[in-house]
Write a protein that binds this DNA or RNA. Structure first.
Lengths: 240, 240
DNA sequence: CAGTGGTCTAGACCACTGA
DNA sequence: CAGTGGTCTAGACCACTGA
């Protein structure tokens, strides 16, 4: 292990005191000139450490008034959105994707979301099942903008599921996800081989690549077989 | 709107080119000395811009080999974990918390999670209902470590629900959340005034304050009344 | 070994803002 | 108006690492 850089030492010093509660929200952080003397370093080094604390949401910097420990704000946390093949393999099960249907069609009039997704082109509509070993794990209904991803028209989805294929071809940069619990209907229950009415985790996601819509998908996970896990809670959530 | 600082202009220049796909993963970023000439600035300024891109996961910096556009990695996204009173109010409904039961007890032997939470002390066990207007929104079962939060023994939970109270008293710094879909049982259905078997969103959360366990809670949300929304997808997910 | 990024210095000018 | 943080310069030394 290498020695910490000086700016990292200053940062971790204050991180420790804030996270342990020794420095309570509202407590004053020494001004930059005091820290320069304390650590015997230049102002740039102090500034780098404080900027990092500020962008991590741990302190708030104010001109003239100095810096103080921030009050925690939004509860935001990092949610892992796993690649299904990877996740299933990590559980020691065999992953398989079965394509149920595939067609190219124009957006439906009166569905502004489909029209926005299609742009000037057509939509690729895909439906398929994700399996873990021999049991269905999720039913996926997906629309892809062929204007944004023309090469998907020829993609071989026997190898990769559409999500993995798209990630490699056109990595998304923004996404919006809605997570809900629903009772599955009779038709879905047959496909997923579960009891009608069983609870399913519904994950709706739309993805963009720099303001261009790429795809929107709904995945219905078998409730008893699947959980989403959020890893880490951020303190102050300074999301760009 | 103020003019961008020079280091922000350099950063946003490359951000735009990377997110638009003009610079593909693997593409080379000019070395710092080239950027100094391009933008007519000092090396510190260039370095600040590239460091920001690197910590955002957009580029990877390598000694001798220079910097390249990063390949997208983990799908991680920021999930908002709302404060229920705030969220309900934002929907224009009246929020109310009804405490159903409250008792102090030792951890159950054979439940390592309870023993770890209790530490050297007792546990405060709370059960209550969150209402939006007159309809139940969620059933909450919570355990609080009285060793970590002794003052909670005297808290007035008629005003604030336990989650909001705890956030103000001992802001958490780390959390682990599991999200699942479950069919609710008969007793829960009565409390939530829904049909037995209706799908509920189960949110399990344990929170820490700098390695000390604070509380663990399970909230069961009425499926048809509640969604979780994740806001933004990060490109490369550089989580500390 | 030569080029790269990581770190740091000792200054400077400035905008902002609370006393 | 005086103190604060934001930004920037023109240098420097260093560790690392691929040619």
């Amino acid at each position: 292990m290498t020695a910490l850089a000086l700016h990292e030492r200053i940062r971790t010093d204050f991180e420790g005191r804030i996270l342990s509660g020794a420095l309570q929200p509202g407590a004053r952080i020494p001004v930059e000139h005091e820290l320069m003397q304390l650590y015997g370093c230049s102002r740039m080094t102090v500034s780098k450490a404080l900027s990092a604390l500020s962008s991590a949401g741990l302190i708030e910097r104010n001109k003239r008034a100095g810096s103080v420990v921030a009050r925690p704000k939004v509860h935001s946390m990092i949610l892992d959105v796993p690649d299904l093949p990877v996740e299933v393999a990590a559980r020691g099960q065999a992953y398989r994707f079965q394509l149920l249907s595939r067609k190219v069609r124009p957006p439906v009039r009166g569905r502004p979301d489909e029209i926005a997704l299609a742009g000037a082109g057509q939509l690729l509509e895909l439906r398929g099942l994700h399996f873990a070993d021999t049991l269905p794990l999720a039913l996926e209904d997906r629309l892809v903008s062929l204007a944004a991803v023309p090469q998907m028209g020829d993609a071989d989805l026997a190898v990769d599921p559409p999500g993995s294929w798209l990630l490699r071809a056109v990595p998304w940069t923004e996404a919006e996800t809605k997570i809900a619990a629903v009772n599955c209907d009779a038709k879905t229950a047959r496909l997923l081989q579960i009891t009608p009415g069983a609870a399913c985790l519904s994950v709706d996601r739309s993805t963009w690549r720099a303001h261009e819509r790429i795809t929107s998908v709904r995945q219905l996970f078998v409730g008893i077989a699947y959980d989403l896990v959020a890893r880490i809670g951020h303190y102050g959530g300074s999301v760009p």
